[in-house]
Design a protein around this nucleic acid. Structure first.
Length: 728
DNA sequence: CTAGGGTTAG
């Protein structure tokens, strides 16, 4: 019960509580005069009543009133004092007693509920049902089952209410065998005509993944109401059968059943999932007409629908329209939309606004906002949010934990990532994947592999993503044999079907180590048609190992699949230039212009300078952006002045700055890496000793952590392998 | 007095 006390003090509700009370209502209830609070015990009991549902409160008080023990104006005060109820013997009233049992059960105090239950002079079905549903809402499912088994011993037969609760438990636990047995009993007892029972049967089957059963039951039902339709539509939605769900939604309306908020919420989610903006707008219009558009659930579903379909303006407009009706879920949906639509800074702003407005943050909030930190990436924001996470006791949550790991990984801080991992109370596969990826992407493939072993030892079943991280680790550590073995075992031992990304990882593994022919063989023998992203690592390998002939061959394949593959033109042009085939090199450049291929960002002197400027003026999270900008500017000028030795053989005049701006672009990549875009500069990065030193220097003056991305070859600091030779 | 359907995350 102390938890209820705490809850009361903090005025916030744990989401696990089985009913929802709006904050205003709570405040309203809490403001009732509580005069008889003397002992801790009373306080706790009073809280129980405060937190009980309104209707029940009224019904208890009504009984109280009807016995003539209180004046109408005094009702609230009386009802707040349950010990008083007991002292006047009302707890022996069958109905009041049952209400009290139910109240304690719903408050999570099963001990008190059981005590009261045992004190009841006469036990009817309802009291038993209250106890069962109490067990269910407290997650004590075994207790609920064993109580159900000895139902007879209390002289009662299970009624439709009992079956509803039991079936609901089966759905939650996803135990279909027990569910089917109960179904049989329900049929035998002729309770199927109770729509509440048949509805929970529908839900049970769909939660157990048995959609055929659910659908055929639905078709056979003698009576269907709105809830039956909603249950089946939701089942289809949850099983990603969106088209059918929408079809039933329409059918329902044709059958003259008017959807309510629940149904509209699911329908909107369906439109989002099938990316049908027209239907989404149609539904939006329908809910406006019915005055439901600003409701908590429907409103949030609308925000989510628009933001998922890239209509952030509509989403934000709707969010503003919701005003104070926006719940934390609405905030989360909006923030998620901003992050997904590459507006990470706006997302951070929204988050600050949310905090400023005192909206409670939950684990979803943190998960989402950490994604924004990761996409910038901004180490300072990361740390700030992390502090809030710890303060709000979410650092043990696996979702938040994994998000933190991802964010720290993007900021290059593996140490922080692993520290976060050790804090997660119950890590799951995805948490493991994240921490393995952290090491595999940040230059410690050995640690990644040992973590992978640890994960298997602990009995976790690796997923496709796990193998992606592990394969990449093997590729970077040059362990071809091990990599090939793990790829085999992924298929044979773990039965995971390799996807495109796995194949390109394998090509990278072989090609990177110089086994170009083997890599080509591998591609030619794939069970699927090779895609551009499977060919591309081979091109990078050709560049690295100076095989112009194969590069030309690979380039053809890539261009046939993706005409706009800028990397093909750039790589070929550079390779030709080095082979002193200047005409060919120039042709590649012309081709690129002709096809209007968008050049990769971060290339020329001006571009880099502008980008750095833009980044630092945007990154409001960095306390010393101006100072750093100036320092960087000085370095750039210095380099420009000293850089005549390494001219581009193709364009000796534009040369030195281009050459060194490439280095700066590299640095810039690790200084800022704005969402999605200049990461390319950084991808396929091969770093020579010079550049490595430069990167260290840049990271020092900017006081930022070095981010080593995907293809960073930390152990190959030979000049010949470096990206700084690519003159874009 | 007791039962049935909804939105957001790694």
């Amino acid at each position: 019960m102390t938890s209820v006390s705490k809850m009361y003090v903090n005025k916030s509700f744990p989401s696990s509580f089985p009913w929802s009370v709006k904050d205003q209502t709570v405040l309203q209830i809490c403001s009732f005069p509580v005069t008889s609070v003397s002992s801790e015990q009373n306080l706790v009991k009073n809280e129980c009543l405060v937190f009980a549902q309104m209707p029940k409160r009224i019904s208890v008080s009504t009984h109280y009133h009807e016995t003539g023990m209180g004046e109408k104006g005094d009702l609230q005060r009386n009802v707040l004092d349950s010990s008083h109820l007991i002292s006047i013997g009302l707890d022996e009233d069958e109905f009041v007693g049952t209400s009290l049992i139910d109240m304690y059960a719903k408050c999570g105090d099963m001990d008190s509920a059981v005590v009261l239950f045992n004190q009841m002079p006469r036990l009817d079905v309802a009291s038993c049902n209250c106890l069962i549903s109490g067990y269910a809402s407290c997650g004590l499912f075994d207790e609920a089952f064993s109580f159900f088994m000895k139902f007879d011993s209390f002289g009662n037969k299970p009624n439709p209410y009992t079956y509803s609760t039991m079936l609901s438990i089966c759905g939650t636990l996803s135990v279909i065998e027990e569910g089917k047995q109960l179904h049989a009993q329900v049929v035998k007892m002729q309770h199927l005509s109770e729509t509440a029972v048949s509805n929970v049967l529908l839900t049970m089957y769909s939660k157990c993944g048995a959609m055929e059963e659910a659908e055929s039951l639905f078709n056979r039902l003698p009576q269907r109401n709105l809830i039956s339709w909603t249950a089946i539509i939701n089942g289809l939605y949850k099983h990603e059968d969106f088209e059918k769900a929408m079809m039933l939604f329409c059918l329902m309306r044709e059958n003259g059943i008017e959807p309510n908020e629940y149904t509209f919420t699911i329908a909107l989610a369906c439109c989002r999932s099938v990316k049908n903006l027209d239907n989404g707008r149609l539904l939006h219009a329908l809910v406006i007409k019915r005055g439901m558009a600003l409701g908590e659930f429907v409103g949030t579903a609308i925000i989510d629908m628009y933001s998922e379909l890239g209509q952030m303006d509509d989403a934000e407009k709707h969010f503003k329209g919701m005003g104070t009706l926006a719940s934390k879920v609405s905030w989360n949906a909006l923030t998620k939309g901003l992050v997904h639509n590459e507006k990470a800074h706006d997302a951070l702003d929204a988050f600050s606004e949310m905090v400023r407005k005192d909206t409670a943050c939950d684990e979803f909030t943190f998960s989402i906002i950490l994604k924004a930190c990761a996409s910038l990436p901004s180490f300072t924001s990361c740390q700030q949010i992390h502090a809030r996470v710890v303060k709000a006791n979410f650092d043990t949550n696996m979702h938040v934990g994994s998000s933190l790991i991802e964010a720290y990984t993007k900021c290059g801080s593996v140490e922080d990532a692993e520290r976060v991992f050790s804090q997660i109370s119950v890590p799951d596969v995805i948490s493991w994947n994240s921490v393995i990826k952290a090491y595999s992407q940040n230059s410690n493939p050995r640690r990644a592999i040992s973590l992978f072993r640890g994960m298997i030892d602990k009995g976790f079943r690796p997923t496709g993503s796990t193998f992606l991280a592990v394969l990449s680790a093997y590729s970077h550590s040059g362990k071809i044999q091990d990599g090939q073995e793990i790829f085999q075992s992924m298929v044979r031992e773990f039965g995971i079907l390799p996807e495109e990304a796995h194949y390109s990882c394998m090509v990278d593994l072989l090609g990177r180590s110089g086994q170009l022919e083997k890599a080509l063989d591998f591609i030619n023998n794939l069970p699927i048609k090779p895609t551009a992203s499977i060919w591309t690592p081979l091109l990078a390998a050709c560049r690295c190992h100076n095989n112009l002939q194969m590069a030309e061959f690979v380039a053809k394949h890539i261009l046939a699949l993706d005409q706009n593959a800028a990397t093909v033109y750039v790589t070929l042009s550079n390779m030709y230039a080095e082979a002193r085939q200047l005409v060919d090199a120039e042709n590649q450049r012309k081709l690129m212009k002709l096809k209007e291929v968008t050049k990769e960002p971060g290339c020329s002197w001006i571009e880099v300078k502008n980008k750095i400027h833009k980044f630092f003026s945007l990154d409001r999270t960095h306390p010393e952006s101006a100072k750093i900008y100036n320092k960087l500017n000085q370095v750039m000028i210095q380099i420009k002045d000293n850089a005549s030795a390494n001219a581009n053989p193709l364009y000796p005049e534009e040369d030195s700055c281009l050459y060194h701006s490439e280095k700066l672009a590299v640095c810039f990549g690790l200084i800022s890496l704005p969402a999605g875009k200049p990461v390319r500069v950084f991808k396929n990065l091969r770093v020579c000793t010079d550049c490595h030193m430069f990167m260290k220097f840049a990271s020092m003056i900017t006081e930022r952590v070095i981010v080593l991305s995907d293809n960073y070859r930390f152990h190959h600091f030979n000049k010949g392998c470096c990206s700084c030779r690519d003159y874009w």
